[in-house]
Design a binder for these strands. Structure first.
Length: 836
RNA sequence: GCCCAAGUGGCGGAAUUGGCAGACGCGCUAGCUUCAGGAGCUAGUUCUCGCAAGGGAGUGGAGGUUCGAGUCCUCUCUUGGGCACCA
């Protein structure tokens, strides 16, 4: 008799309804009776269609959330929408829809899909960043930062994407191209912008990484560390010869090489260049060269590969250490934005300087000698010697090691008044002004009399006006809405103009996870006590693409909020997991590539549990996964097999009482039962371990598959297997499946009459301790010498025996006093002993 | 150039501390079932020699440590990722 397959559509709808009615995933704030667990997936930008790449992220988070719930935790597992952003405006231009309508329609669809998958979200806490109840608190936080001087306005060179028609943060520029428009070169423009002073937090962002080392992927920390780019060095002042009062400041990390300086190099945009070139004969030619160079330096993309070029300014600078006069050059490879925009050129000990000196015949003077080996010779060098060593030809510092010199020379420079030790960072302040409509309005007004005036808290939120024409023609769309722009100054009551730029949407996502703790608070961004209860986030799950942007900004916001007294922790996220992408045809799924596997289509065809199982099974969660229409059939077949197996045996098990907390007495078991009990416990142990420490859910699935296979091999299960044992085994099987394929698991639980269903506190516990009777004593000898003695678990199948180590005459193994055949278990333990 | 990760069957991938390499799944082969297709079930499936029993080789490559290495050490090659005139 062939049993019918399970009907995923029916049971998925059924259990989703039941969960909803029970409020099964409602987190309770401040519950002290249970340990809390906050698991979060990165909130999606609602655009396009949800595909299996998204679903993988949510499936991993959901499996962890459900597992932790089954372990008895008070789990917070929320979902929301990163709803502001450019695509809404582009759609508005293209289709004539309002960005709000377009976004809301997308949210509706996204919510429908996520509900269709039955993820265990507490939907009461759903947030949307374009909701005035949410962005009000963006504005509120901005005003607090304004008060503290963290938010400030300055005119500066900014990255401008002609396709986005807006400014980009440094973090949004990749090799000179826009992060959204991979083929659009970013232009440099000079604009008045709002900035957040993230640089004030450079050191704390670095130092607090120590707290993240246990829970964050190493490479994310490395990327952030590189991005902050801290370097310790010194500032040294070179006077310009024959120009009273004019001096050039140089930043160097290698002050120990200063006696080898052959020149001073300035960037083409150096502020003192103009003064320097006055009265120099032939400076008109230089102006032309400068202009050419300046234009080139705007094209950040090809700087790294460009040929080194420069010209002599006609001026000299005085090395304050040696008194040498060195020529001042302008060089194209000197970065204006880093350090002071001026560097010393030490050809012998810096590769770039070496190349530059070679081209323009500047002298190469060796001032650091390597510790061992033949002395360096300037005429024999093929590249610069950039390592530390011992100083030569360096006046009073000759003979010191580089390390000693670095310290002493910086200190001397300070005491003699021509320099000081200094640390510089690659990190720059975060420009948040965007000349776009669909974002949070920046809550300030400009008054002729009072200047920049913050909007008072009681006038928040500054709402986005509804009737706006979005043309995509540059300048903020809000500027063309007189009702919005024209307002009264909160201070003097006179006429004032509102700020028409909106905030970078990364502001929205830098603190959203706090709002989940208290999503409907209208008096504050959140209640401090609730946040204290839930934070830090125990597990954050998302893509590696946010390694710098979102995650660095979030850490920054946390620290600012801590300084504002809003939170009392240093870091918002205790553990981070970066899952791999889902690919089709070797590339990430994306609408533009046309290789997406739609989540709804997949669920309609196979059921969402099959999709969940496949994404967990096909690869470990950290690796990229190639979607295979063929391979997913395997997951589908497996779920059908389990379903039919339980369906077949369940009727016989009705009314059989089991107690999962009691231990089975193996000595009273039939051999068949013994095997089943053992296999079940082994599987449980492995799955538990996968969830607790390993995060290899593919092996969890494999191990459950093995158990099912074993059950099938042991058929007929109504012979030599008591109903109690069988029911226990099948129940544990259903419980193990629950985090991964929750609907199927619930259905199995119902068939087995599992009282109360699958929920909080239901995760079964495997046995750790064995009685003496279940163990055997193993003695290992090598060359007749005792190497160890250990008690091991009695081996299960005698057929699993034997092996090579035994054939080695030097090794003998005694089990319970006799030299015998060994099992795998024994051999494994043996190794440990031998090594000890 | 610098830093990080990874190289295992036809494919995705197992192998928790060094101890049966290839679990589990896909695909493929044969058989049963079926009018047929599909689905299901059974058996097989690292390569190689052999009708067979059985033998040999094998975790990118070369050395090393060890009774024993996919795993540890040294060197090397390849692929992926990050950073890249940051002085």
């Amino acid at each position: 008799m062939k049993l019918p397959d399970y009907d995923p559509q029916r049971i998925e709808a059924k259990w989703q309804r039941i969960w909803e009615e029970r409020g099964a995933f409602h987190a309770s704030d401040g519950d002290r009776s249970r340990e809390k667990y906050y698991v979060l997936e990165m909130l999606p930008y609602p655009s396009g269609t949800l595909h299996m790449g998204h679903m993988r992220n949510y499936t991993i988070g959901d499996a962890v959330a459900r597992y932790k719930q089954m372990r008895g935790y008070n789990v917070l597992h929320p979902m929301g929408w990163d709803a502001f952003g450019l695509p809404a405006e582009n759609a508005a231009i293209k289709n004539g829809t309002h960005p709000r309508d377009w976004t809301n329609a997308n949210i509706l669809e996204f919510r429908r899909v996520l509900k269709r998958f039955g993820f265990s979200y507490d939907w009461r806490r759903e947030i949307s960043t374009c909701d005035p109840d949410y962005y009000k608190w963006n504005q509120w936080l901005f005003l607090r930062m304004l008060e503290k001087g963290i938010a400030f306005r300055k005119k500066s060179k900014v990255n401008w994407c002609p396709d986005c028609v807006t400014v980009l943060a440094n973090e949004q520029v990749i090799d000179g191209f826009c992060w959204r428009h991979e083929t659009t070169q970013v232009e440099i423009r000079e604009l008045e912008q709002w900035f957040l002073r993230i640089t004030a937090y450079s050191d704390r962002l670095l130092e607090d990484m120590a707290q993240l080392e246990a829970g964050w992927p190493e490479r994310v920390l490395v990327m952030q560390r590189n991005w902050i780019g801290k370097s310790k060095g010194a500032l040294v002042k070179f006077d310009v010869a024959r120009m009273e009062g004019l001096a050039l400041e140089v930043f160097t990390t290698r002050i120990d090489t200063i006696y080898g300086a052959s020149a001073i190099l300035l960037s083409a945009e150096h502020p003192k260049l103009k003064a320097l070139l006055e009265q120099v004969p032939g400076n008109s030619g230089m102006a032309a060269q400068l202009k050419a160079m300046g234009q080139k330096s705007m094209r950040a993309a090809d700087i790294a590969t460009a040929e080194k070029e420069g010209f002599f300014t006609g001026r000299f600078a005085v090395n304050p250490f040696s008194g040498d006069h060195v020529p001042i050059w302008v060089a194209n490879f000197v970065l204006a934005e880093y350090g002071t925009g001026a560097v010393m050129c030490v050809p012998a000990h810096d590769q770039r300087d070496y190349e530059f000196a070679g081209k323009y015949r500047l002298p190469v003077k060796i001032v650091v000698e390597r510790a061992t080996g033949a002395p360096l010779r300037a005429d024999r060098m093929e590249e610069a010697f950039t390592e530390h060593g011992r100083l030569v030809q360096s006046g009073p510092y000759t003979g010191l090691t580089s390390a000693e010199a670095l310290e002493k020379m910086a200190a001397d420079a300070q005491s003699k008044g021509f320099g000081e030790a200094q640390t510089t960072y690659r990190l720059k302040d975060w420009g948040i002004s965007r000349q776009r409509y669909w974002g949070t309005p920046i809550p300030v007004v400009y008054c002729q009399k009072d200047g920049i005036v913050p909007v008072p808290d009681n006038q928040l939120p500054v709402r986005l006006p509804e009737n706006v024409t979005i043309t995509g023609q540059g300048q903020s769309p809000l500027a063309s809405v007189p009702e919005f722009v024209n307002t009264n100054c909160p201070k003097c009551g006179g006429h004032a103009r509102r700020e028409t730029d909106t905030m970078d949407t990364f502001v929205d996502s830098s603190w959203y996870f706090y709002r989940y703790a208290d999503p409907h608070n209208d008096a504050a961004p959140f209640d401090k006590e609730k946040v204290r209860y839930w934070f830090p986030i125990d597990q954050y799950v998302g893509g590696i693409t946010h390694a710098i942007l979102h995650l660095l900004y979030s850490r920054f916001f946390c620290k600012v909020m801590r300084d504002l007294g809003l939170v009392d922790h240093d870091e918002p996220i205790a553990r981070l997991f970066t899952q791999g992408m889902v690919q089709k045809g070797g590339v990430a799924m994306s609408k533009s590539r046309g290789n997406v596997v739609g989540a709804i289509e997949m669920a309609d065809k196979y059921g969402c549990d099959t999709g969940r199982m496949y994404t967990l099974f096909a690869a470990p969660p950290g690796k990229d996964l190639e979607w295979s229409e063929q391979a997913i059939e395997g997951s589908s077949r497996f779920l059908n097999r389990v379903y039919r197996l339980v369906e077949k045996h369940a009727p016989r098990l009705h009314g059989v009482a089991i107690d999962l907390n009691s231990q089975t007495d193996l000595s009273k078991c039939t051999p068949k039962e013994k095997i089943l009990v053992r296999k079940t416990h082994q599987a449980l142990k492995r799955v538990t371990n996968d969830f607790e420490v390993r995060w290899h859910f593919n092996t969890s699935v494999a191990v459950i598959m093995e158990l099912v296979k074993e059950l099938q091999t042991q058929e007929p299960l109504d012979r030599d297997v008591s109903p109690v044992i069988l029911k226990r085994v099948l129940t544990v099987l259903a419980l193990m499946l629950a985090p991964m394929t929750p609907h199927v698991a619930e259905e199995l639980g119902e068939m087995l009459a599992l009282a109360g269903g699958i929920g909080r506190g239901r995760w079964p516990v495997y046995r750790e301790d064995l009685t003496r009777e279940e163990q055997i004593e193993v003695i290992i000898q090598i060359n007749g010498r005792l190497r160890g003695k250990i008690l091991v678990e009695e081996n299960l199948g005698e057929d699993e025996t034997l092996d090579r180590a035994l054939k080695d005459p030097r090794i003998s193994v005694l089990i319970d006093g006799k030299t015998v055949a060994k099992t795998v278990v024994v051999v494994k333990k043996l190794v440990n002993i031998v090594l000890r």
